[in-house]
Design a protein around this nucleic acid. Sequence first.
DNA 1: TACACCTCTGAATCTTCCA
DNA 2: CTGGAAGATTCAGAGGTGT
Lengths: 409, 409
Amino acid sequence: MHQEPETRLLKGDCLSVLPTIQSESVDLVYLDPPFFTQKKHRLRTRDRSREFSFDDIWSSNREYTEFLHDRIVEIYRVLSDKGCLFFHCDRNSTHLARFALDEVMGAESFKSEIIWHYRRWSGSTKMLLPAHQTIYFYTKSHDYTFNVLWEDYSPATNVDQILQRRARDAYGKTVYKRNDAGDIVSNGGKKGVPLSDVWDIPYLNPKAKERIGYPTQKPLTLLERIIQLTTKENDWVLDPFCGSGTTLVASKMLNRNAIGIDTSDDALALTSTRIQELRKSESNLFIRGRDTYHNADETALTFLQGIEYVPVQRNQGIDAILKEDLDGTPIPIRIQRKGETIIEAGNKLYHASKEKNVRLMFLVARNNGGYFILGDDLPPEVVIVNSPALEIRNCLDRLSPAPVTRTPK
Amino acid sequence: MHQEPETRLLKGDCLSVLPTIQSESVDLVYLDPPFFTQKKHRLRTRDRSREFSFDDIWSSNREYTEFLHDRIVEIYRVLSDKGCLFFHCDRNSTHLARFALDEVMGAESFKSEIIWHYRRWSGSTKMLLPAHQTIYFYTKSHDYTFNVLWEDYSPATNVDQILQRRARDAYGKTVYKRNDAGDIVSNGGKKGVPLSDVWDIPYLNPKAKERIGYPTQKPLTLLERIIQLTTKENDWVLDPFCGSGTTLVASKMLNRNAIGIDTSDDALALTSTRIQELRKSESNLFIRGRDTYHNADETALTFLQGIEYVPVQRNQGIDAILKEDLDGTPIPIRIQRKGETIIEAGNKLYHASKEKNVRLMFLVARNNGGYFILGDDLPPEVVIVNSPALEIRNCLDRLSPAPVTRTPK
DNA sequence: TACACCTCTGAATCTTCCA
DNA sequence: CTGGAAGATTCAGAGGTGT
């Protein structure tokens, strides 16, 4: 059925290696050259046996731009007529890259400025924390391969818009379409929203098994997306700065042939190993989505407006923590859930806070939980605060005591 | 107390208008010049009475870049030594803008490449759907004004990291810190994560109240964030391409002085109207809190979740009425506004209810309104119910009474 | 002024623990 | 044993400090 994909590794500066590759023989080029950071990058493998490093220090803009220009000329030559190019850079070099690319490939070949957005460690900054890198998407001609990919609808999207076909009325205004009987016309199944140029893909986490110890290693998901977007099986993919070889691994997994070039023997050895082992660690976050981590009751948190707090997720007992502290000890908060008694809620809050050096915590009560209780069974550190709705309810009950069935304990 | 902010509108090309402005007199410049789209932009007002349009067609890169360069030179002159500049552009012009900015202000003045990310509706496309614009952040000197803003932690972050201090063990490994008794050491109050350079702010929804009919109109939230990040009250903000005047509106709302320049009479007229309307509602804003401009009243009702009520529109005193009644008399509710004392709120509620055969009404208190009051001055029918946030605040104040200055009546 | 080094980070995984 | 929840871990980081 399908051919075993071929993977070639070539050693050297791509400027001198590329001339050995035939013209117009490659369908996709992804390149990830140095970012003009003016720093030396190094990282040890997890077992600390080896250290990979490379210099990214340049004497001038000009030197860097010429470096890029010369290589892009050769890359352009080997790219097929329907081929696509993705150039990975960051805020240090976007403008330089764009100029070099425009000059060699023509400004009309520019298709998209892709923003790879991620959240990353490191806080305490006096600046805006950098949280994105840029990938420029160019094609060689007007007629290029492009497979439309789909994303899920944003949670805010109106269901009607997903399900109903639309039309324009007499004034050109968009309205929901109706048939002759006046009924709404269904849209048939929809796949989602076409992929946008902002890609939210988790950064390769320091603890990820996928991480191999090479600096600047890119997540497999990122490369998979690029490859799926612009190639089909058995196409040829080229990475002239292949580093740890993520592009080649992704290509092989997706049955694309690939060529990788790098100046470093260590990098090539590493790539070679990765291709043979072909390991991918699935990112839970990416597969299940960020929302699965939420367990603070988001709508209930609006009870707290007017006071400064930090929402807490990924914990069953605590919904938020006050920004203020009590003599250095944190002050956690829980909002009582529906179908949860005050005692249950209080115990969860207390339990989650027990080991955390807490002296005061607040529980927002939303109902009486089936019986009147005033915290007798709860530790004294738990302060119960009634929601306005509960307070109103209690006041009304006092005025006109209704025959309420109380569940006995 | 605080000075009424000044707003000046100047007509003309900023290149010829800027020379009338004093050197180093402006603390923040936000500019949003044409994006080099090579298109003509037009949009009708909602009532279709007027059409705004402008040309964004250029003979060459060079013409556009020179246009920018000349204007940035003048802008640089009027910018104060601690001043900041934000340059708004999109994928058509990022590299040209960056070059012009680097040339005039110096590459070392570059601070951040801000990505404004938004979701947009669009049918199927053979392209990646553009969903971002770029804002370059430059400063005039090394010593600039920057107020750190905070975001929520990622939902995947665990509580321990937020709460516990860390240290390094004998092997240099990071571990949670413990004191001599072996107890966990708390981290004190935390505010969240410093703001990143990717800003997820909804695009002006075509139906948004905020939308005024001007093409390329920017969301208020975007400008508010920029202004809060780099200025303080009574600073001067300049927008040399002010268009529909969002920058000036945001400046005024945040008590900053502002200068707007535009070549179009229509644009200036529109801006002027927007600012006047803001002034008209100013008294309202002062009473009800600035957040009202962003529909804060809708969120205020969330305090009532858990009880059945009917929201009341168009009434100055009553926000909602309970579905339940008291012996046939209605039970109105009011939520105390920011900047409103409990007495004021209670009186409004009482007055609005007076003629309506009311025997019981609820007032949800959100702050102490400047002095301690327990409802003595209010009619007995008004029952005060504290918001959870206020209840928590009061509890904390009781524990560690801070020396708070109370405004006497 | 340049850079080596140290401290403080939080994201998302890996790992352990517990019901 | 098994699955989920909570704790532990590591870093193309960032800023400050000292040489």
